[in-house]
Every structure is written in structure tokens, then in C-alpha cells.
Design a binder for these strands. Structure first.
Lengths: 138, 138
DNA sequence: ATTGGGCCCGTAGCGCAGTACGGTGTCAAG
DNA sequence: CTTGACACCGTACTGCGCTACGGGCCCAAT
């Protein structure tokens, strides 16, 4: 079975060498066997593992959360309900984030709608909204 | 005109003393005059300034962006259109953020819908989606 | 006069997810 | 046998927005 150096893993997975070392330090990737000279010797499994991490990140999970997901998937016999629960928590978090952003967007849109962009900065409704009391700051 | 110590400003504005010193270091608040013993001597204007910063943060602007907004508002005679343009950029950024979050939320929802939470972790469709190739990682 | 708070300063640390650096050792090709 | 690319290591740095620390001065009240 052919093995991969850290550089080959990096090229094939699209992440940097330093990132792989970092993931190892953080416990997201198992410490691999070494060749005589100390070079890391990876099997193909590490590529799957890195893709797992990358997909998790894409779904908005933090590395800490991905680590938890990984432990879950390794503890055979434990119920998949744990995973589902984590996903639910994540979904609720995202929902809240979206709602907060919508509120901010609405406020900004109202502000720019009120702005004719015609006057000087001292009459800008956007700045006025931020600087509620109108008066030079001296 | 009565002046305020940094602690009074902190209490009235609701931010910490250290935060005010930090804002000063970052140039968001002008360096105030000092009393003989070196104590900062603030006028009421600083409270307005801090509220400006807080509202800007509430609208999703970074401290760097707030600083730019502040410079704009101080350069009298400059057009309010600059401010409006920045607000537009911000709105577009928020729109993109929301869209990205919606995509992630959709993906997570599809995954949890497919999950009966009945099997063991090794048959969890959520983990399967992350770990595309099904096989123990040994 | 002493006590307890408030204020001064520069520096270090947090959490996140890497990225970069610098010095040394190793490997494969020519 | 030399060269150049790669690998090793620990440590430090990035950006963001604070927060905390330690040591020392100052001020008002008792």
C-alpha cells in the first residue's frame, strides 16, 4: 500500500502543509507513523479525513465542533441522534444569525433610502442616525 | 463646563474603562486634555462619540469602517454620497452573508430530514455526507 | 494620616484558524 | 557529490475587539 508525504497530501487535498500539521496538533488528524528520517507517512484515509473537515467547515461547523462530530462517528454503537441534535443546534444558530443580519440590513436600507446623497456630510441622514445629537464635536 | 473622568464616561456609556483607552489608542476617540495628575478630562462630546461607535457596531460596521465614517463626518463640505456608498457596500456584503447562510441552512436541513436518528452513528446520513466514502478510518 | 477606591501606563492574553519564519536534516536526480 | 526541493521542529505572528494584569500614583473621605 503506497503512502503519501505531507506535501502530497497537501497537494491532493488542496490545503497547506502547515494546515495539516496544525490539524494534527489540534487532534483532528491522527498522528501518522513516520519513516526512519521522521517524515510523516500517510495512508489514503487522511484525504477522506481532510475532506470531512473541509465539508464540515463548509456547513459552518467550527473545528471544535468538527472534532466532536469525528469522535461521535468513531464511537460505534452510539446513536446518530447525537449528530442530529448538533445539526439542529447549528441550524438554530444560523437562523438567529440570519435574523440579526436581516434586521441590520433593514435598518441600513431605510437609512440609505432616506439619503438623497445631495447635501454635505453634515446633513447626511445616515451619519445623523449614528450621531444622534446634531452638533459639531469640538 | 463640567468634565468627566474616564470612569464616569465608562459608567454613562456602558462600556469599560479599558475599552475607552482602547478606542483612544485606535484613534476612534480623540486624546483628551489631562488634569495636572494626568487624569483624562472628558467633555460631554465623548459620550456622543461612543454612542456613534456603538450604533455603528450594531449596524455591522467594523471599528475600521466606523473610523472611516467618522473621518467622513468630520470633513465638512464633503458629500454625503460617500457615506451612502459605504452603506451600500455594507448592504451588499450582508446580502451575500445571508445568502451563504441560507445555503448552509438548506444543506443542514436536508441532511437532518434524511436522518431518522434511529441507526448507529455508522449509518448516520449526516456523517455519511461529511465522510463521503463509507469505511472505517483505521 | 490612613484607607479605599480610581486612575495612570505598557504589555500580555483570549479565541479562532490558520500562516509564516528560521534553522536544520533528508532525499532523489543529475 | 552536489544541488534543489522537500521535510522536520518550535515559536511567533496575523486580524478583530477587547479584557486582564501588575505596579505605581492620586484623591476624597474618615
Amino acid at each position: 500500500m503506497k503512502t503519501l508525504t505531507i506535501g502530497q497530501v497537501a497537494r491532493e487535498s488542496g490545503v497547506g502543509v502547515e494546515t495539516i500539521r496544525f490539524y494534527q496538533r489540534e487532534g483532528l488528524i491522527a498522528t501518522p507513523p513516520r519513516r526512519s528520517a521522521g517524515y510523516r507517512q500517510y495512508g489514503a484515509g487522511v484525504l477522506r479525513r481532510i475532506r470531512f473537515i473541509l465539508r464540515g467547515k463548509g456547513l459552518g461547523f467550527s473545528l471544535r465542533e468538527i472534532n466532536a462530530l469525528l469522535s461521535l462517528s468513531l464511537s460505534r454503537g452510539r446513536s446518530c441522534a447525537d449528530v442530529k441534535a448538533r445539526a439542529h443546534v447549528k441550524i438554530e444558530g444560523i437562523r438567529a444569525q440570519i435574523a440579526a443580519l436581516e434586521r441590520v440590513k433593514g435598518a441600513l436600507e431605510r437609512l440609505t433610502d432616506a439619503c438623497t446623497a445631495r447635501g454635505s456630510a453634515s446633513m447626511c441622514p445616515i451619519l445623523d442616525a449614528l450621531d444622534a445629537d446634531v452638533e459639531g464635536d469640538k
